Amino acid sequence: NITNLCPFDEVFNATRFASVYAWNRKRISNCVADYSVLYNLAPFFTFKCYGVSPTKLNDLCFTNVYADSFVIRGDEVRQIAPGQTGNIADYNYKLPDDFTGCVIAWNSNKLDSKVSGNYNYLYRLFRKSNLKPFERDISTEIYQAGNKPCNGVAGFNCYFPLRSYSFRPTYGVGHQPYRVVVLSFELLHAPATVCGPKKST
Rank of each mutant, 00 (worst) to 15 (best):
F156Q: 15
S129N: 13
C150F: 05
N58H: 12
Q176F: 01
P133I: 01
A145I: 09
R179E: 04
F70T: 01
Y119D: 15
V20A: 05
P133Y: 01
V65E: 01
S184L: 07
S129P: 08
V37G: 10
Q84R: 08
C158T: 04
V20T: 03
S116L: 11
R16G: 07
V11K: 03
C6Y: 02
G172H: 14
F185I: 06
F126S: 11
R124E: 06
G117C: 06
Y93M: 03
G86L: 06
K128W: 05
G83M: 11
T15M: 05
V103S: 00
Y35S: 08
P7C: 09
F167Q: 06
F167M: 05
D9K: 11
D97R: 08
A22E: 12
D112A: 01
S164R: 13
I104K: 00
P197H: 14
T140S: 11
F185D: 02
T100C: 13
A33P: 12
F12D: 02
R16L: 08
C150V: 05
Y178M: 09
D112V: 00
N64H: 15
C158R: 03
N157P: 05
R27K: 14
C31T: 04
K148V: 13
A190W: 08
A33T: 08
S164F: 07
Y91Q: 05
W23S: 04
I72K: 00
A105L: 03
L188S: 15
G74S: 05
F99P: 00
G101A: 00
T63A: 11
I72S: 02
A67I: 09
R78L: 07
N147G: 12
Y159F: 12
V115A: 15
R16P: 06
Y91E: 04
Y39S: 14
K110D: 15
P197E: 12
F70A: 01
F167W: 08
A154P: 14
Q84T: 11
Y171V: 14
A154W: 07
F70E: 03
G172K: 15
V11M: 07
K198P: 12
Y35K: 06
C102T: 00
S164T: 13
H175E: 12
S166G: 14
V11H: 03
V103W: 00
Y159S: 14
A81R: 05
K148S: 13
G152D: 09
R168Y: 10
S108D: 06
W23A: 04
Y165H: 06
W106Q: 00
N109G: 07
G152Q: 10
N147F: 09
P7I: 07
V115C: 08
L122G: 15
E186A: 05
A67R: 00
N118F: 03
E76Y: 01
P96W: 00
I138D: 12
P82Y: 00
T201D: 14
F167E: 06
I104G: 02
Y165A: 05
V194N: 11
L57P: 03
N1T: 09
Y66P: 02
T46F: 09
V20K: 03
A81T: 03
Q79F: 04
F185S: 01
C158K: 05
L131K: 03
P149H: 10
P43G: 09
A89K: 02
T63R: 12
P96E: 00
N4D: 12
N4E: 13
V180L: 03
F70H: 02
V115N: 14
C6S: 04
S116R: 12
S53G: 09
R163D: 08
G196T: 11
Y21S: 04
T85G: 08
A22N: 14
V182M: 01
G51W: 00
H189S: 14
G83Q: 09
C31L: 04
Y159L: 10
L95A: 00
N151F: 11
N58C: 07
C195E: 09
G117A: 09
V115W: 11
N92G: 03
G155H: 06
L41R: 12
Y171D: 15
H175A: 14
E141M: 07
R25P: 02
P133T: 05
V71P: 01
F45Q: 15
A42G: 15
L57T: 05
D59Y: 10
F167I: 05
K198V: 11
N87A: 14
P177H: 01
L41F: 14
P54L: 14
I28R: 00
V11W: 07
T3Q: 09
E10R: 08
I104Q: 00
P191Q: 14
C31W: 04
N130M: 11
A154I: 11
W106Y: 07
L125W: 14
G155D: 10
N64E: 13
Y21E: 05
D98V: 05
L183H: 00
P96H: 00
G74N: 03
R163L: 07
L122V: 12
L162G: 03
S108K: 02
C158H: 04
E76F: 01
C61M: 08
D112E: 06
N64K: 10
S200H: 13
Y93P: 01
N24A: 10
E141R: 08
T63E: 12
N1W: 02
K110H: 14
F45R: 15
S53K: 13
N92H: 02
D34T: 05
L187I: 12
L38A: 03
T46L: 12
D34R: 03
P149K: 13
A81D: 03
Y21G: 03
T3R: 08
Q176N: 05
L111H: 11
N13D: 01
N13G: 09
V20F: 03
L5W: 10
N130I: 12
R124D: 06
L188W: 10
S36T: 12
E135A: 07
C158E: 05
A18R: 05
K148G: 10
S113I: 05
P133W: 01
V65D: 01
I28A: 06
L41N: 13
V65F: 09
S53E: 14
V194Y: 10
A154K: 13
G146T: 09
L183K: 00
T3F: 05
G83P: 01
C31Q: 06
Y119R: 15
L95K: 01
K26V: 13
Y171A: 15
I142M: 12
Y39C: 11
N64L: 09
G155Y: 04
F185H: 00
T201Q: 14
R168F: 10
P169Y: 06
S113G: 12
K48C: 06
K148N: 12
G86N: 03
V52A: 06
V77D: 01
D75T: 06
V77L: 13
A192M: 11
A105I: 06
T46D: 11
F156E: 15
K56T: 10
I88K: 02
F17R: 02
Y178W: 13
F12K: 01
Q176Y: 03
L41K: 13
P149W: 06
F185L: 07
Y165E: 06
V153A: 11
S116G: 15
L125C: 14
K110N: 13
Q144G: 07
S19K: 02
R163N: 09
V77R: 05
L188F: 10
F126N: 13
K48V: 07
H175Q: 14
K56R: 12
F160C: 09
V11P: 02
S184P: 00
H175W: 14
C102W: 00
A145H: 11
Y91K: 06
V180S: 00
T15P: 14
E135D: 07
S113H: 06
I80W: 01
L41G: 12
Y119K: 15
D90L: 06
E186P: 06
R73Y: 05
F47V: 15
N58S: 12
I104L: 09
I2M: 13
Y171W: 11
N58P: 15
S116A: 13
P197Y: 15
E141D: 15
L41E: 08
V37L: 12
C31P: 05
P177K: 03
R73A: 10
L125K: 15
Y39K: 15
S29P: 08
C158P: 03
G172A: 14
A42P: 14
P54C: 07
N107T: 04
R27G: 05
C49W: 03
I142W: 08
F45I: 12
I2C: 09
F45D: 15
V181Q: 00
F70C: 01
N147W: 09
N30T: 04
L131T: 04
N87W: 08
A190F: 08
P149D: 13
D34A: 05
G152P: 06
P177Q: 04
G86T: 04
D97A: 10
R16T: 14
F12N: 01
V65L: 13
T100Y: 14
S164V: 08
P43H: 09
V52Y: 06
T3V: 07
R179F: 04
F17S: 04
N1A: 07
S166I: 09
C150S: 05
C6L: 02
A192I: 11
S116K: 13
K198I: 12
